[in-house]
């Protein structure tokens, strides 16, 4: 059974259909990327998957359970890092536990051992305003991880970062995703980012938006660095065609 199954999801705002009959599935340990033009309904789809809004029709099954309109079932990282400026990094990261009713001391103890793994050692008592963009993004990602759910939804997780930091973050993300066996759906506007990180790419297109194409990324055949390989260039070309 797939970890996530989305079947025929349609969402309407003020009489306008934003997404229509969206269906796809995500397996355990898989990284899936959603790409598509602005306004095609990617974030709306994420809001449906996270339970923040209920769709006009369709179902969202997580491990076979219908989670339509139910929040707190998936780990969701929104477009901005959204770290609370008035909380230290350790309190930001442990927020999911605090919301779950855990005492502050216990919640801090739970997250403290992970700071090194997430590359955030020494930032525990700092405030978000004292961190660089990359560090903030890692902290937001770490907090998302502590939602503790099997599926992570990341809405343009690296879009606010500069090119160099983004490259570092890709390597870091791939290492951490493998270590923690994460199942992730992320939104991106960057084709190279999608091809570097995702096992499968879903292309959203049309008005109303729907899944128009699907691309499975096979890295095994590529020699050396995948991002400089012939197959990477071919995948990129195919994606560009899909997005036209």
């Amino acid at each position: 059974m797939a970890l996530l199954e989305v079947k025929g999801v349609t969402q309407v705002y003020d009489g306008v259909t934003i997404i229509e009959d969206v269906s796809f599935s995500v397996e355990k340990g898989e990284t899936v990327c959603l790409i598509g033009a602005s306004g095609v309904g990617k974030t709306t789809l994420f809001q449906v998957l996270s339970g923040l809004i209920a769709p006009a029709s369709g179902v969202v099954l997580l491990n076979g359970e219908n989670v339509v309109g139910k929040t707190g079932k998936v780990s969701y990282m929104l477009q901005k890092d959204l770290l609370l400026p008035f909380k230290t990094i350790i309190d930001n990261v442990s927020l999911p536990y605090r919301v779950g009713g855990m005492r502050k001391k216990k919640a801090r103890e739970k997250v403290a051992p992970y700071f090194e793994q997430f590359g955030l050692q020494g930032t525990e008592k700092k405030y978000p305003g004292q961190l660089s963009g990359g560090m903030r993004q890692r902290a937001a990602f770490m907090r998302t991880y502590f939602f503790g759910h099997e599926l992570m939804l990341l809405d343009e997780p690296f879009s606010a970062l500069d090119e160099m930091t983004r490259e570092d973050m890709y390597a870091w993300y791939m290492r951490i995703a493998a270590e923690l066996n994460l199942s992730t759906v992320f939104i991106s506007h960057n084709l190279e980012e999608a091809l570097t990180l995702a096992d499968r790419i879903l292309v959203m297109a049309g008005r109303p938006g729907t899944i128009a194409h699907e691309l499975k990324v096979e890295r095994d055949g590529a020699e050396g660095d995948f991002t400089t390989s012939q197959s990477f260039a071919e995948y990129k070309k195919a994606l560009k065609e899909y997005l036209k």
């Binding site: 809001q47 996270s50 339970g51 923040l52 929040t71 707190g72 998936v74 969701y76 929104l78 959204l82 927020l95 999911p96 919301v99 779950g100 939602f147």
Partner: peptide, 8 residues
């Protein structure tokens, strides 16, 4: 929204 997605 972030807090709501945590189930708050």
């Amino acid at each position: 929204d972030l807090m709501r997605s945590m189930g708050a």
